[in-house]
């Protein structure tokens, strides 16, 4: 059997701030090379916690109580700090949620785009500049020289997200964690950005963990989906299969709750309370976690 790129096995974690409430319950999932995996769930479902764990940036208020995260067979949670920080930014990178806050307002784009190239690869200034131009071309930014010399506030949100995508793929990472990268953008830009991430991912052969709460986004970009609720994996499978023939009642309720473009006047159907009752019973929690 070939080794998975990422194998999360029985990962459990609690929040130390929340009186030891579980944030992840025995989560297992695997991610193959070049695969795009959606992590879907409402706020507090644990999708961001998994993403942060993959990046080694779990907040001090979250404590892992069991399980492993293996990246190419190496246990990320037990890895020495030095080794971990060497891995991060080189093999595992991040596309952040909000392009407004993810670029330093006081530094030019070139400096920020080439940080990784210079720090991780030891590239010289000229070589990094060349590579930056190439990257901007890859994410379809016209007049890249002008953009490299610009400050973030001189660029639009979509433009900034393109730069952040270029930056995430700059070192040909094996895994990109995309943390709701389209949430802060308007719908038309969203579509382009999704297409761009997909194209970059295919061109670089990179696996992507795509964190989102939007099943519509998942349908557009993900090969496989993991649906989480209250830190537990509810359903896991190929996107097409899951969206057309959901196995779990929560999945079908979520699909039904989404907007229907074929019936724009039908209105939204919230997930029925009965579904949450069943979920809580299955997971074994008394109250609905918000």
């Amino acid at each position: 059997m070939t080794q998975s790129l990422v194998a999360i096995e029985g990962l459990s974690a609690i929040s130390t701030r929340d009186g030891g409430a579980p944030v992840l319950r025995d989560v297992s999932l695997t991610l193959e090379k070049g695969e795009v995996r959606g992590l879907v769930g409402e706020s507090g479902a644990g999708k961001s916690t998994i993403a942060k764990a993959l990046l080694g940036i779990l907040p001090s208020t979250v404590k892992v109580t069991g399980g492993f995260i293996r990246f190419e067979g190496r246990d990320l949670l037990a890895m020495p700090r030095r080794e971990l920080s060497d891995l991060m930014g080189r093999e595992i990178t991040l596309i952040p949620q909000d392009p407004q806050t993810a670029l330093n307002p006081a530094r030019r784009i070139e400096a920020q785009l080439t940080d990784g190239l210079r720090l991780k690869l030891g590239m010289g200034k000229a070589a990094a500049h060349e590579r930056a131009l190439q990257l901007l071309d890859e994410v379809q930014i016209r007049n890249p020289e002008r953009v490299l010399a610009a400050y973030p506030h001189e660029l639009s949100g979509g433009m900034r997200q393109r730069i952040l995508i270029a930056s995430a793929f700059a070192l040909n990472p094996k895994l990109v964690v995309a943390d709701e990268p389209t949430t802060a953008l308007d719908v038309t830009v969203q579509k382009e950005i999704l297409r761009l991430i997909r194209r970059m991912q295919e061109a670089h052969g990179t696996a992507v963990i795509f964190v989102t709460h939007d099943l519509g986004v998942v349908a557009k970009i993900c090969d496989r989906v993991t649906l989480l609720y209250a830190g537990k994996v509810i359903e896991d499978g190929a996107t097409a299969g899951m969206l057309t023939a959901p196995k779990h009642i929560y999945t079908s309720a979520l699909i039904a709750a989404g907007p229907r473009y074929d019936r724009p006047n039908a209105g939204l159907e919230p997930v029925p309370e009965a579904v949450f009752r069943q979920l809580r019973a299955e997971i074994g929690i008394a109250e609905r976690r918000v």
């Binding site: 991060m88 991040l94 952040p96 806050t101 993810a102 330093n104 990784g116």
Partner: peptide, 13 residues
């Protein structure tokens, strides 16, 4: 605690 600092940290700064 801004995202750009987190990104720079991930890049090895």
């Amino acid at each position: 605690v801004q995202d750009y600092v987190l990104l720079a940290r991930l890049k090895g700064m």
